Simulated scan of single mutants.
Amino acid sequence: MAAMDSRRLLYLQRMGIDVWVRRTDAAVPSLRPETAEESERTPESARAGEVSVAQPAPAGEMPASPDETVREPAGTAAEAADWETLRQQVLSCTRCPLHRTRTQGVFGVGSQTARLLIVGEAPGAEEDRRGEPFVGRAGQLLDAMLRAIGLDRQTVYITNILKSRPPENRDPRPEEVAACEPYLRRQIELLAPALIVAVGRVAAQNLLRTDRPLGRLRGQWHRYGPRETPLLATYHPAYLLRNPADKRKAWQDLKAVRRALDTEVSA
Score class of each variant (00 low, 15 high):
residue 119 V to D: 07
residue 29 P to Y: 01
residue 150 G to N: 11
residue 246 D to T: 05
residue 1 M to G: 10
residue 253 D to P: 01
residue 234 T to Y: 01
residue 198 A to L: 10
residue 240 L to S: 02
residue 30 S to M: 09
residue 232 L to H: 04
residue 91 L to V: 10
residue 57 A to L: 04
residue 151 L to Q: 05
residue 6 S to H: 11
residue 105 G to D: 13
residue 157 Y to I: 05
residue 25 D to P: 06
residue 83 W to Y: 14
residue 13 Q to V: 06
residue 229 T to Q: 12
residue 181 E to Q: 14
residue 81 A to I: 08
residue 227 R to A: 06
residue 214 L to C: 07
residue 83 W to P: 13
residue 208 L to M: 05
residue 4 M to T: 15
residue 110 G to L: 01
residue 111 S to H: 13
residue 21 V to F: 14
residue 177 V to Y: 05
residue 37 E to F: 03
residue 240 L to Q: 00
residue 97 P to F: 00
residue 80 A to Q: 15
residue 109 V to M: 12
residue 212 R to E: 06
residue 91 L to A: 13
residue 75 G to S: 09
residue 126 E to V: 03
residue 210 T to W: 05
residue 100 R to I: 02
residue 237 P to C: 03
residue 244 P to F: 00
residue 169 N to G: 11
residue 158 I to D: 05
residue 30 S to E: 13
residue 72 E to H: 12
residue 232 L to I: 06
residue 169 N to E: 11
residue 193 P to M: 04
residue 265 V to L: 15
residue 136 G to E: 04
residue 9 L to V: 08
residue 131 G to R: 02
residue 207 L to G: 03
residue 174 P to M: 01
residue 65 S to D: 06
residue 54 A to S: 13
residue 35 T to F: 10
residue 150 G to R: 07
residue 110 G to V: 00
residue 57 A to W: 02
residue 104 Q to H: 07
residue 236 H to I: 07
residue 1 M to Q: 13
residue 98 L to N: 03
residue 266 S to I: 04
residue 54 A to N: 10
residue 213 P to E: 12
residue 225 G to S: 15
residue 267 A to I: 06
residue 83 W to T: 13
residue 118 I to N: 09
residue 12 L to E: 07
residue 160 N to G: 05
residue 235 Y to M: 10
residue 15 M to Y: 00
residue 67 D to H: 07
residue 59 A to C: 12
residue 120 G to V: 02
residue 52 S to M: 03
residue 106 V to M: 09
residue 101 T to C: 09
residue 172 P to C: 12
residue 179 A to I: 04
residue 59 A to S: 15
residue 129 R to K: 14
residue 20 W to T: 14
residue 132 E to R: 11
residue 157 Y to M: 10
residue 45 S to A: 12
residue 195 L to S: 02
residue 54 A to T: 06
residue 55 Q to P: 12
residue 146 L to D: 01
residue 98 L to S: 02
residue 10 L to S: 08
residue 13 Q to K: 12
residue 111 S to W: 05
residue 22 R to F: 15
residue 16 G to M: 11
residue 245 A to G: 09
residue 5 D to V: 00
residue 152 D to W: 06
residue 68 E to M: 11
residue 175 E to G: 12
residue 192 A to T: 01
residue 250 A to Q: 07
residue 237 P to I: 00
residue 44 E to K: 14
residue 99 H to I: 00
residue 74 A to V: 04
residue 176 E to S: 09
residue 131 G to P: 04
residue 199 V to F: 04
residue 190 L to E: 08
residue 138 A to W: 01
residue 234 T to G: 06
residue 209 R to Y: 15
residue 220 Q to S: 11
residue 258 R to T: 01
residue 11 Y to G: 02
residue 11 Y to H: 12
residue 95 R to F: 12
residue 27 A to P: 04
residue 77 A to Y: 09
residue 202 V to W: 06
residue 129 R to Y: 07
residue 105 G to H: 03
residue 204 A to W: 00
residue 191 L to C: 05
residue 55 Q to L: 11
residue 91 L to E: 14
residue 28 V to T: 11
residue 113 T to A: 09
residue 101 T to K: 14
residue 151 L to R: 03
residue 266 S to C: 06
residue 267 A to P: 10
residue 64 A to S: 13
residue 68 E to C: 15
residue 224 Y to I: 00
residue 42 T to S: 09
residue 192 A to L: 05
residue 219 G to P: 03
residue 19 V to W: 01
residue 63 P to T: 03
